[in-house]
């Protein structure tokens, strides 16, 4: 464990908690893409299948359980508890355009053709594009509440910190995970445009971020 990965995991946890609290306290999921949250729940489900078969550390196990629980709780709030506030009309991204290529690629590119490895690879590739429906929804509505932008900022920051973690681990222990690194770089690039808007707009203290 290194400071970059710890900061990344904390940033990821903060993002998930920000969103969950926003929905719970405002009792509304307006402006939130339920599809992205479903995809994130699928990412954690397919990635953490080794939760009961492999023990790495208490931290690893606890964080996996927390991420799974919070992501399912978020999906529950959106599609069950506050479903009448779910903006399905604007959450219109065709997720099959993400799932088909990701499934295809994970059958093409993986470390081993075993169910666990292919599902893990699927979760890595899926995570890179899972935010697309949310970013698409923001471009469609033309704006995002500032709390939603904070969610996206910490979510984007988490994988950027993981890149620093991979650089660190490569130089200190020769660790290299090509699939995770390539996918993580692509994922972070998707946030660059948003990061620019976030820094130039939201940090100026505007309540809403309106896209050009």
């Amino acid at each position: 464990m290194n400071v970059f990965r710890l900061a990344g995991d904390v940033s990821h946890l903060v993002a998930i908690i920000i969103l969950l609290l926003k929905i719970w306290r405002s009792r509304s999921c307006a402006g939130i893409s339920g599809k992205s949250q479903l995809l994130f729940a699928l990412v954690f489900t397919t990635r953490y299948l080794d939760l009961f078969t492999v023990y790495i550390s208490a931290y690893n196990t606890i964080m996996k359980v927390v991420f799974l629980a919070l992501s399912y709780a978020t999906v529950y709030l959106i599609y069950m508890r506050f479903r009448n506030t779910y903006d399905s009309e604007n959450d219109s991204f065709r997720v099959e355009f993400l799932l088909v290529p990701v499934i295809g690629l994970s059958f093409l590119e993986h470390y081993a053709f075993t169910p666990m490895e292919v599902l893990w690879t699927f979760s890595i590739f899926l995570e890179a594009v899972a935010i697309m429906p949310q970013l698409f929804m923001i471009t469609k509505t033309g704006e995002a509440e500032s709390i939603t932008t904070h969610y996206l900022f910490f979510l984007g920051l988490y994988r950027a910190l993981y890149i620093a973690n991979w650089v660190w681990r490569y130089h200190t222990e020769g660790f290299f995970d090509q699939i995770a690194v390539v996918s993580g770089v692509v994922q972070t690039i998707f946030y660059c445009d948003f990061f620019y808007l976030y820094v130039t707009k939201v940090v100026q203290g505007r309540s809403k971020m309106s896209l050009p």
Binding site: H12, N60, Y111, Y162, G174, F176, D177, Q178, I179
Partner: peptide, 10 residues
């Protein structure tokens, strides 16, 4: 070398 087989990350 494409990877060091170590799934210890979240």
């Amino acid at each position: 070398r494409t990877h060091t087989q170590k799934k210890d990350e979240l």
